[in-house]
Design a protein around this nucleic acid. Sequence first.
DNA 1: CGTCGACTTGAAGACTTCTGCAACTACTCA
DNA 2: TGAGTAGTTGCAGAAGTCTTCAAGTCGACG
Lengths: 110, 110
Amino acid sequence: MSVPLYQAKAEMFRMLGHPVRIRVLELLQAGPRPVRDLLAEIDVEPSNLSQQLALLRRAAIVVSFRDGGLVMYALSTPAVADLLAAGRRILSEVLTDRDGLLAELKSTAE
Amino acid sequence: MSVPLYQAKAEMFRMLGHPVRIRVLELLQAGPRPVRDLLAEIDVEPSNLSQQLALLRRAAIVVSFRDGGLVMYALSTPAVADLLAAGRRILSEVLTDRDGLLAELKSTAE
DNA sequence: CGTCGACTTGAAGACTTCTGCAACTACTCA
DNA sequence: TGAGTAGTTGCAGAAGTCTTCAAGTCGACG
């Protein structure tokens, strides 16, 4: 496999590596949403949100279009939802393991 | 959803946002491997690889153990493979023969 | 024991990403 | 057309990440 290919993969995951961007993608799973709604749900400056949206747009993970006086954003592919779901699953397994270990730690007299 | 939760999600994706770390996880999909094998397959300084492995270990995405004179690494959960697969799928949808990476992506089953 | 091989850790400098402010563009609607 | 709303862009300082070098640990084996 070529070096650029896993650089592309890494770049894609890096795009999800930010709380605001994750939040945006989760909100967009339910369908297209105007920036104003995203702003209302995410505690962030408009300019900051716009910067994060620009990154997602440049990575082609979302697309934007205008609808009347509003700019709308949408996932460019529903596969993004699978990625988020897989992430959630790992997180829950990892946290469960950690809790399991924690319980074990507490119950053994060492 | 609490703020810390999507910070945790973001952190998990950020962990995958590096070519060396992606490469390591892809190699570990086939089963546990000693550091020396990873080093042989990835073009990186030993100390650098070790730093990246430490990050993955701290994020609980991989685990390490000793086997004789070698240190082995393994995925902490097979769900990591799903995440990589979902990433691949988005990349192929998003990349739609933009720079010839697409063909390679489809031809290598990893 | 002592030394060797196999990693790991610490630290520093280069580099990248994040954030918020201010200025700006793009539209809509009266 | 002019006023107003919605969003974007440029920029600079702060914060974080990456890479490399040197030094350190840990277990195996003679």
